[in-house]
């Protein structure tokens, strides 16, 4: 436990020294603000583009609902630009230690490989969730302020789903890091696989309901306790465990 604490605490300190603790939440705050802001001032923005008269907006179009705005923020902004930046922020989670010799220095001490991997997953997962949650909270407040009330339980469900997905992406990147040695190819492959895992279940929701990305394909009004949601959560948790287990198996042979 002491080893896990030491390794995790050092990762957090490093995130602080590299200002990741600051810029990651700021980035997600910016993302969280963008979607409500765009929808709130859509009329003004559209009026200033197009020809001299601007673009005419149907005055009878329905006003955006707070649930749709919040869902679009998380599933759109967070899962596109946010995902790219998140993967970039942790794609070197094993590769950098390997390059600097830290992995050798750590693993030649009485440190279990599993504890080392778990500390990497936990610290990078928590740092990512920390940034994402601050952005999501900002977005929630702004959405409620501009577009009316939004059930906290529904918002919590959307945030929880994206949190689980984020943790899965961290474990996926960890797994890919046990196959590849350089950070950039690890990042690119993690991104491509993640995008595929989101796109495929949305194309075939009935068949690929067990995929980790299926959680993000659920309709925004899906209840927290609905069977489809619970199945999605359990599937994602199983996928996280599977990727972590596979990483541990791979790391036994490739930790050098």
């Amino acid at each position: 436990m002491r080893t896990f604490y030491t390794l995790t605490w050092t990762e957090w300190l490093e995130a602080w020294k590299e200002w990741k603790i600051v810029w990651l939440p700021l980035f997600f705050i910016a993302l969280g603000v963008t979607q409500p802001l765009l929808l709130m001032y859509m009329d003004v923005l559209l009026a200033h583009v197009g020809n001299a008269d601007g673009i005419i907006v149907d005055p009878n179009r329905p006003a955006p609902q707070s649930l749709d705005v919040f869902s679009a923020t998380i599933h759109g902004q967070f899962n596109q630009l946010g995902l790219i930046v998140l993967i970039m922020s942790f794609m070197g989670l094993l590769a950098s230690d390997r390059q600097t010799g830290m992995q050798d220095f750590i693993l030649t001490r009485p440190v279990s490989r599993n504890v080392y991997l778990l500390s990497k997953w936990f610290s990078h997962g928590m740092i990512s969730l920390f940034g994402m949650l601050i952005g999501a909270l900002t977005s929630y407040c702004l959405t409620v302020y501009w577009f009316g009330s939004l059930s906290p339980l529904l918002a919590l469900r959307i945030i929880l789903d994206f949190s689980l997905w984020t943790l899965f992406v961290v474990s996926l990147t960890l797994l890919i890091s046990t196959f590849l040695r350089r950070a950039v190819p690890i990042g690119i492959l993690s991104l491509v696989v993640s995008l595929l895992l989101v796109a495929l279940p949305s194309l075939m929701p009935d068949i690929l309901f067990f995929m980790p990305g299926a959680l993000l394909s659920l309709p925004s009004h899906t209840s927290f306790f609905s069977s489809s949601h619970l199945i999605g959560i359990i599937s994602c948790l199983i996928w996280i465990l599977l990727t972590l287990g596979w990483s541990a198996l791979r790391f036994r042979k490739t930790a050098y």
């Binding site: 050092t10 490093e14 020294k17 590299e18 390059q99 600097t100 010799g101 830290m102 050798d104 220095f105």
Partner: peptide, 9 residues
């Protein structure tokens, strides 16, 4: 190890 960059911070 051959690499001794450590955590440079």
């Amino acid at each position: 190890s051959q690499q001794t960059d450590f955590k440079s911070w």
